[in-house]
Simulated scan of single mutants.
Amino acid sequence: MKIINPEDIPLAFQAAWNHHDMTAFADLFCEDATFVNRFGHYVQGVQEIVALHVPIHETIYSDSTLVNELINLAYITDDVVISHFWSRLTAGVAHPVGPHQIDTLILVVLTRQNHLWRIRALESVTLTNPHTGQTILRDT
């Protein structure tokens, strides 16, 4: 998928996830991108990012879906943008705890190379109650 506009990233990420298409997922990232998942696991490089996701898409998230919603875009330069978007994961029966939902706030740094936007860095934070640690869903 060729991302022409930074605002397309959340929906492209959602589509790749929902189709469990790791080729489309990989195409969202720069070769040397970094990724921090909601558990604080850090990886660098598109191959490592895909390697982190393949096993979960084959098992616990094989029937999961995402719904992403763009919050904002902040242009640093014409070729660098910071974006935030909400992501609601709906896990299905394949997950060990069964069907449930989780909201995360995703921050991405996007860069444009050869007229195409790619994710250079992504970090995801799960919404939790700071007093109990329990996950919470945002008001939509």
Rank of each mutant, 00 (worst) to 15 (best):
T111E: 13
E7R: 14
T132D: 02
A16P: 00
Y42G: 03
D78W: 01
I49L: 07
P130Y: 02
F35V: 01
A74E: 12
D21P: 06
V67G: 07
Y42V: 09
D63G: 03
G40A: 10
D27N: 15
R138K: 11
R88S: 04
I106W: 02
G40C: 08
F39R: 15
D79I: 11
N72T: 10
D139V: 11
D27R: 15
S62I: 07
D139G: 09
I3L: 06
Q134D: 04
Q14R: 07
L110C: 01
V46Q: 05
T90E: 06
K2L: 10
W17G: 09
G133W: 02
Q113Y: 09
T34Q: 07
I119W: 00
H100F: 11
S62H: 10
F35T: 02
I56G: 05
A94F: 07
I4C: 07
L127T: 06
I4K: 13
G45M: 06
P10K: 13
T126Q: 09
I71Q: 10
G133Q: 02
L116V: 13
H115W: 11
S87P: 03
V54E: 10
Y61F: 14
A51P: 00
R138S: 08
L11S: 12
I119K: 01
R120G: 02
Q14S: 08
V109S: 09
H115T: 15
Y42A: 08
F13S: 07
W117S: 00
L89W: 06
H53T: 01
G45L: 02
T90I: 08
V43W: 09
T65G: 12
D79M: 07
L73T: 12
W17I: 08
A121K: 04
L89A: 07
D21R: 09
I102L: 13
V81W: 06
D103E: 01
L73D: 02
V80M: 08
T59D: 08
S87N: 13
I49D: 03
P55M: 09
N5L: 11
I106Y: 02
A12T: 05
L89N: 05
E123N: 10
V36N: 10
L107V: 08
L105W: 06
A16Q: 02
L107Y: 09
N72M: 08
Q14D: 10
I82M: 13
Q44K: 14
L122R: 02
L52D: 04
A16D: 00
R38W: 05
L66H: 15
G92P: 01
K2T: 13
D63K: 00
M22R: 15
A26S: 13
V109Y: 04
N72A: 11
L116P: 00
H20M: 03
Y61G: 04
A74C: 11
I119L: 01
V50M: 06
F39W: 14
G40M: 07
I82T: 11
L107R: 14
A94H: 11
H19L: 14
Y75M: 13
H84I: 03
M1Y: 06
